[in-house]
């Protein structure tokens, strides 16, 4: 035992020389989504948080947590095709953090998501949209409608989506600084 104060992990990390940025990636495939009986968004999001925090600052791990939560929640809550599987991918390298979530969806569902993403604009514009959407939906406590906006307004991700072979994929990308 010693009386010398011990530095916290955060302080030690701040004083340490910059470590090379790690490549971290995982992919999960599950299905059918209609068979999920537990809290899938929480399980995958908390895994993402813990994994990213092993290599990167907690601020980035928290971003991964939010994005995985909201995107996985979207596919679980909006299952149009009960037999659809779900695919969740996360990858970080020295350039960016990329998270994508895909499921089977028709053209109509794709068009809706594409329109939502197109309406988000810049983070500043998305922030105004977030405030307006909260004001509009709060009186009825309407569920949904905030997740994608939040990813841009709050976490400064760039969102995109595509539709290939009947699968809708939503991708969130965050550039790493420096």
């Amino acid at each position: 035992m010693t009386d010398t104060p011990t530095e916290t992990a955060a302080e030690a990390s701040a004083q340490a020389p910059a470590a090379p940025r790690a490549n971290v990636a995982f992919a999960i495939e599950i299905g059918p989504l209609s068979a999920v009986v537990g809290d899938l968004p929480t399980v995958v999001a908390e895994f993402s948080l813990s994994l990213v925090a092993l290599f990167y600052p907690m601020t980035l791990a928290k971003k991964a947590n939010v994005v995985v939560t909201e995107l996985v929640q979207n596919i679980v809550e909006n299952v149009a095709e009960p037999t659809s599987d779900g695919a969740i991918k996360l990858a970080i390298d020295e350039r960016d953090l990329v998270i994508s979530v895909s499921n089977i969806a028709n053209e109509e569902a794709y068009a809706k998501v594409r329109a939502k993403i197109a309406a988000l604009g810049t983070p500043a514009e998305a922030k105004k949209l977030l405030a307006a959407t909260i004001r509009e939906r709060r009186p009825q406590r309407l569920k949904g409608g905030l997740g994608l906006i939040r990813l841009v307004a709050e976490n400064r991700f760039t969102l995109s989506c595509d539709h290939k072979d009947g699968r809708l994929t939503v991708t969130a990308r965050y550039p790493l600084e420096g």
């Binding site: 971003k63 977030l130 909260i134 709050e154």
Partner: peptide, 13 residues
């Protein structure tokens, strides 16, 4: 201080 939700969205809430 460094939590995106608490810095960006909380003021809206």
């Amino acid at each position: 201080r460094d939590d995106d939700w608490q810095q960006e969205t909380l003021p809206i809430l």
